[in-house]
Write a protein that binds this DNA or RNA. Structure first.
Lengths: 222, 222
DNA sequence: TAGATTGTTAATCGATTAACAATC
DNA sequence: TAGATTGTTAATCGATTAACAATC
């Protein structure tokens, strides 16, 4: 009875729910209505109820939602609560940021090792995570299976590195190189494209400035 | 005659178009049909024609699109071709990654300075970008106006840092702290939420594994 | 000219919003 | 009980896809 597939639009909102609910817990709020949560998150109450109802009956009429219960249910849906072992290809800034991201280990993400080509990085231990030669990636995975592979290498080698991860048994790839990685159907990939978000920002900045100029032209100062 | 507003869905695809078109240029392809571009990007030909038509008549019947022309037009829409001065709050891994991102300067992004609280970072020059005390952020902006502010600080201080940027005249904020920054209507903000993309990945991984288990249960091995 | 491929309108699909009965 | 708020159905809105005449 595999309930109808959850739409992508909903899934992409889930981490936001998780984030806001944790925040509410932290400031000691124990119950919340769809109305109030919507106001905080910038969504409509209706949308929130629809979203949550994809996953069953989690609220209570006349009361609202229990914050902790809802947060923990969403955590389960997102696959948190598992332990995930990670390997990180590329020990540059992005790789290091991921290795060390605050709250990562707390949420079950366990970076086993980084891999790089730079001789001055290989052999070091950065924030508790050892850096190995990238040539060790494949053999390392043989010894130390990992579910998640982080690709934080130059674009040039990213596909090849991903390939090695997949051969080594990695099932999920979190990619920061600025290209869309190709993966087989039994592997999931998420391409982050940091620069894309910057370009959306410049687009909006640009628009805003043009609108202001237009407004000035219509309302000439004095 | 402000043509109808471009929808968010289209805008979020623009950086992808830009990225793929640059790639095509690089490998020497000079013309492309919506069919072929769609196949590469994983979109339908129809959608590509609809998207591009938001911005006027850029193709030619019976021929397709000129790659360079289309790329350069989209670059213009995205606000590239301008010079953008940036200040970066937080000189940790994310801050440094942004300061140094390959191709950034080439695309007109000019990081003026980073700001941090750590005494061992303040005063250093990292990849050509000086690190100042975060208390200097506001006065620095007085002397050196910047359009874009990057927030790569702990969540705890992010809103306050953004505030100082805005007071200093920053018009666009690229935020990496895991919360949604509040900005006035004459400022644009883009909240990246790196962790969210990881959670979407674990969601999909989790789903895939459950599907496989279900399949195994239906098709018991031997 | 014939073939290719766009620009654009119409049809479909899916996501969001509104409304309200159910119920805590 | 009365008030609040959900779960859920129906209505609306917007985005994607299909289709095809226009035209290079």
């Amino acid at each position: 009875m595999a309930a109808h597939r959850i739409s992508d639009a909903v899934i992409r909102r889930l981490p936001g729910y998780y984030r806001y609910l944790r925040e509410l817990e932290k400031i000691g709020i124990t119950r919340i209505s769809s109305q109030e949560l919507g106001a905080r998150m910038g969504l409509t109450a209706s949308q929130i109820r629809q979203d949550i109802n994809c996953f069953g009956t989690l609220g209570q009429q006349g009361y609202g939602y229990n914050v902790t219960e809802l947060r923990s249910h969403i955590a389960g849906i997102l696959g948190l609560g598992h332990k995930y072992k990670m390997v990180i290809a590329g020990a540059g800034n992005i790789g290091q940021a991921v290795a060390w991201y605050p709250g990562f280990s707390q949420r079950g993400f366990d970076p086993l090792a980084m891999f790089d080509v730079k001789p001055d990085l290989i052999g070091r231990v950065i924030r508790g995570v050892p850096v190995h030669n990238i040539t060790e990636l494949r053999p390392f995975l043989q010894e130390h299976p990992a579910e998640i592979g982080v690709v934080a290498t130059p674009a040039r080698v990213a596909q090849q590195v991903a390939q090695q991860m997949i051969e080594g048994g990695v099932r999920a790839i979190w990619n920061f190189a600025p290209l869309d990685l190709k993966v087989p159907p039994n592997v999931v990939a998420n391409n982050v494209h940091l620069t894309d978000s910057l370009l959306v920002l410049t687009y909006r900045l640009h628009q805003m400035e043009q609108n202001e100029e237009a407004a000035d032209a219509n309302n000439p100062e004095r």
